[in-house]
Design a protein around this nucleic acid. Structure first.
Lengths: 113, 113
DNA sequence: TCATTGCATCAGCAATTAATGATATGATGA
DNA sequence: TCATCATATCATTAATTGCTGATGCAATGA
């Protein structure tokens, strides 16, 4: 952890990115790009379990990435801000550019080794 | 973890964001925005320990966010792509917009210093 | 009122991660 | 060659995280 100034701003940014640093949550966000979805819809679309989905949704709420709206006994989630799409798009562009380096980098083995 | 298709692309994105999901690494990246820096410079600028800095640099290399270049007995690191600045800027804009909600959300307690 | 549905939360675990101190490697100059 | 400096890596520990199954709770409709 850091001892210098600016810790708070960095923690905020880290918190934001932590919400994006999981493939399950990215899958959820990806579904929400098309519009609000209920929990059960997200469960069906992603294949995640119900409790796992709820946990990830709570995490995304916590990170400020999504918003919650109850309608009857359904709860609909949506992206909290349009800029999130831009963030994901920028990330994809970045990945496209570093892809060559990624393939050549021996350090970069997605999971194993 | 997910069972559906598109897992690989999501994992890549998650890996990228995981590199950004830590305040120490964000501090390092922030310093590198001004240009290449050696490890010892980064150590001094951030206040992180030497071994901790090296570990985070290895992580950032692994995520494809920075590049390495040895000069004599110094090793200089730099942002691997200009788009990383854009990603950080987009994140800050996003944080500025959700800041109000963040302040009001009791779930959102940033980690202590 | 009761059963059901949709969602949230809890406890527990396995796995991952950040940090530290110690040590190793590798380049440089005396 | 030897000593030193810059960086990388190792072993360990503590903390965090993702997942599961079970349970709780609120909204709905019979």
């Amino acid at each position: 952890m850091l001892l210098n100034s600016g810790v708070t701003a960095l923690s905020l940014r880290a918190k934001l990115f932590r919400g994006l640093a999981d493939s399950s949550r990215l899958a959820i966000l990806d579904r929400l790009r098309a519009g609000p979805r209920s929990v059960s819809q997200i469960v069906e679309l992603t294949g995640l379990s119900q409790s796992n989905t709820s946990n990830h949704l709570a995490c995304l709420i916590d990170c400020g990435l999504i918003a919650r709206e109850q309608q009857g006994r359904y709860v609909f989630y949506r992206l909290s801000d349009e800029k999130i799409k831009g963030l994901l798009e920028t990330a994809d562009e970045l990945l496209a550019e570093v892809a060559r380096g990624v393939y050549e980098c021996t350090h970069y083995n997605a999971e194993s080794e």
